[in-house]
Amino acid sequence: MSNRTIRILKVLLFLAALVPVAGIVWQFQTNNLGADPVNTLTHETGDWTVYMLLASLAVTPLRRLSPKLAWLIRFRRMLGLWAFFWATLHLLTYVLLFSGFDLPGAFTALRAGDLHTVVEDWKAVWPTMVEDIQKRRFIQVGMLAYVILLALAVTSPQWVLRKMGGKSWQTLHRTVYGAAVLGIIHYWWLVKKGNHAPMKDTVVLALLLLARPATKWLQDRVAARRKMNAATA
């Protein structure tokens, strides 16, 4: 596939990834975020983090299916960065909305130049978050997953890869599996017992993880056969 086509496809993928962002903005504009928008936004941003992570993890097994799909790798970084984007929004909904921080009030205060109110409100919600991080394991695994995604996003530019060296860069970026697994654990630990909502994401992640040894085996077998054919020819 030519570089030009790839560039066009990248723009299209970027635009497609903007659709859910536009969807949430539209929900907000039309007052369609439901009775508890804090809950809706937390769930939607969490869902899209997982979807983008799963999409980025699908790249390797897909391209192993055929040498003709090698170009798929050119889109993986963008998918990973979208996962990081959603994870950041997810964290922000927790810090700025779920925590009880009065965000609309803070905007009003800021417009009036009243920084004091904002700081006081922040001081009021901060202890709850500290307690969450100290006590609640679903928050802990979620935070850890975010730290991983942050490290991967920061080291994603080409020049960082060159600076780090391919080997250590790859080792670091393999922790994306950890982030995905932690993200799914975070989901299971936060829903009530009996709620099987995280099951679909779990099954897809499991398939994507299993697809790696499976496609590797397939690849090796094809290579071995080719070698044998070459030897007997």
């Binding site: 975020l33 508890d36 804090v38 009880g100 009065d102 965000l103 919600v125």
Partner: peptide, 12 residues
């Protein structure tokens, strides 16, 4: 608690 009332974002 988040009080669900007429406003878009519930107040805590």
């Amino acid at each position: 608690e988040r009080r669900i009332d007429a406003s878009v974002f519930p107040k805590t």
